[in-house]
């Protein structure tokens, strides 16, 4: 961490206009992310964590959703810039992995093809052989045994944990500056959870990737994150270092959240 800020989100406000009355999904979300930093976002279901993450990844394009605020990356406001500029960052500078490893991969495409995709899109100058080598070494790096075989498999031939590793490989192949992980371990069992968290740590250390880690699991967040944000009903109610937030929570809501978890290892 060298302290340089690479992402600033200010006054992010997301409102759905699907129904008669506007529904405020995210009311006030602010975030600064430093290079090489891991920030955790915690909060109950429906507090707006995923929507904020999708907004940063540029994946909220529904007409019925009104977005305001600023998401500044690389001197550009991702909320207002044109689609082409945004696409230029997606998968190359900003990657995202999701909660649902079982459905996030295309069922009819081979693993290798999917892992290589952002390279194909952003770096067409890289030839096929090099791309394949990179994909295989990335599959190896995320802890998949026999990556040459996995490269040729289809998603349904892998377990949930393996698929999430594939998702990480695909997200990291372009060595992005930011990785957004939206509850990447919720659908996995405990031992796999710990391995995935270790994997994220490794990428953070080796590539200097900044990570936004969203989770319900406060103990995972405290293991992984330097800074933590607590969200409640579309608002960020508390931010601080992991230690501050977990040992001296200022907000009643945060205290309830912590109390709801039986044991936290700090």
């Amino acid at each position: 961490m060298n302290g340089e800020i690479i992402l600033t989100v200010t006054d992010l406000h997301l409102v759905f206009h699907d129904h008669d009355t506007p529904e405020i999904a995210v009311d006030d979300f602010d975030l600064t992310l430093e290079e090489g930093e891991i920030v955790g976002i915690v909060g109950e279901s429906g507090s707006g964590k995923s929507l904020s993450a999708l907004a940063i990844a540029g994946l909220l394009n529904r007409k019925s959703l009104k977005k305001s605020g600023r998401i500044i990356f690389d001197g550009v406001d991702l909320l207002t810039c044109d689609r082409k500029t945004l696409r230029g960052y997606q998968g190359d500078e900003i990657s995202i992995i999701f909660q649902e490893p079982m459905t996030s991969l295309n069922p009819v495409k081979r693993i290798g093809w999917q892992v290589e995709e952002s390279l194909r899109i952003h770096h067409p100058e890289i030839d096929k052989e090099t791309r394949k080598k990179k994909a295989i070494s990335m599959l190896e790096k995320v802890g998949l045994h026999d990556p040459e075989t996995v490269y040729k498999l289809y998603p349904h031939e892998l377990s949930g944990g393996m698929r999430q590793r594939v998702m990480i490989a695909a997200a990291m192949i372009g060595e992005p500056k930011i990785l957004i992980a939206d509850e990447p371990t919720t659908a996995l069992d405990v031992t796999v959870q710990a391995q995935i968290v270790e994997l994220l740590k490794t990428f953070n250390r080796d590539y200097g990737t900044s990570i936004i880690f969203i989770s319900h699991d406060l103990s995972l967040v405290s293991q992984l994150c330097q800074r933590v944000m607590v969200m409640y009903q579309g608002n960020v109610v508390e931010t601080g270092t992991a230690e501050e937030v977990f040992s001296e929570p200022r907000q009643a809501y945060t205290r309830r959240l912590i109390a709801a978890i039986p044991k936290i290892r700090l």
Partner: peptide, 26 residues
């Protein structure tokens, strides 16, 4: 509307890219 299209967009695909390279075969 399926999840994998969101993944495809997140890698920088255009709408046509998602349609022809991901959705159509399915």
């Amino acid at each position: 509307a399926k999840d994998y299209t969101r993944t495809a967009y997140s890698r920088g695909n255009t709408t046509n890219g998602v349609l022809y390279r991901h959705v159509l075969q399915n």
